[in-house]
Amino acid sequence: MNFLPDFSHIYVESQSIDSDIAKQSFKRFPKAKIIEIEDYKKIFNKNGQDFQIQKLSTKLILAKKQPPFIYPATDIIQDSGFSNFYYCTPILNCIYNCEYCFLQGMYSSANIVVFTNTVEVKDAVKKQILERKYPDEPLLLSLSYNTDILALENILPLTKQWIDFANNTDDLFMEIRTKSGLTSSFNKLKPSKKILFAWTLSPNNIIQKYEHKTPLLERRIMSIQKIVDSGWPVRLSFDPILIYPNWKEDYKQMFERIKETISGDKIFDITIGVFRMSDDFYNRIKKTKPDSDLFYNNYDNSNNVKTVTKDQKAMVRDFALSQLDGYCNGDKINFWD
């Protein structure tokens, strides 16, 4: 189809135009139309946007992040036992387009915002480490709550910079959630126990139907293998496990493939979850009449979160646990509840 390629246009705030990230972006996309803007919110939050239509040709917006730079994590994301759990938003939105993703309910725009004042954000993280509530424990920072930062690594190598930052900052543990297959940037880096790569894995049928633009399962597995074998901690995330006719067959094949390729002993931990989304985001998405069949099912409404029924949750839990039985220490498996 003849839609303009992603990043055909770069909208850049005047105050960001001389930043390193802007310069890198202009170099990476020499044919992009550069449009100077005053305030990114005037384009990112403008009226009359359609998230899914903008996904046909996603634009890049470069802006200066205003405070707050760091946020306490919400209940929707798993903390896996970390008491000081925060996230920051170096990027808003994602180059992938997963149909179950809350971002389409969180933002009216599908365009990707990259914040250029990374030094200020990192300073705020350092400050938060000093002020953390549980000083005996490190601070866990999720970098990819509102994006898949690693998926952008061949466009803007931000993940590598954040890894350097974590390695040079005491009491900081960083989680990078991803579905990407991009690991080449890390081949030359010394593995760090302070960085937790959390790879979301799904059967190919799910990837092809719901996780648009993401790498297929085998590509993700190959990336995990390389990273795990190099000595980086890796979390496997089966989240969300979706329920549909014959779902067990697809997931069984996926678990088998993972068991035969990735050593369970080397895995940091495993998280498992089902479809869930805050009522607000769900309703906002539903209003746009999305094509995805995920928004036309009957869900339970539990504490303002749309999710599957308790029985379905138990079924997924029992099934996943049985599949992972003997793969790794049971204590390493966490289920979102």
Binding site: F3, L4, I35, I37, K42, I53, Q54, S57
Partner: peptide, 26 residues
Amino acid sequence: NKIKNETNNDVFYPDVLIEHNWEERS
């Protein structure tokens, strides 16, 4: 690709999604 109202300084950005052969201007 960018429209500014000189009188009240409102700025609008129409989405440009489909390939075309024109040059773009504000």
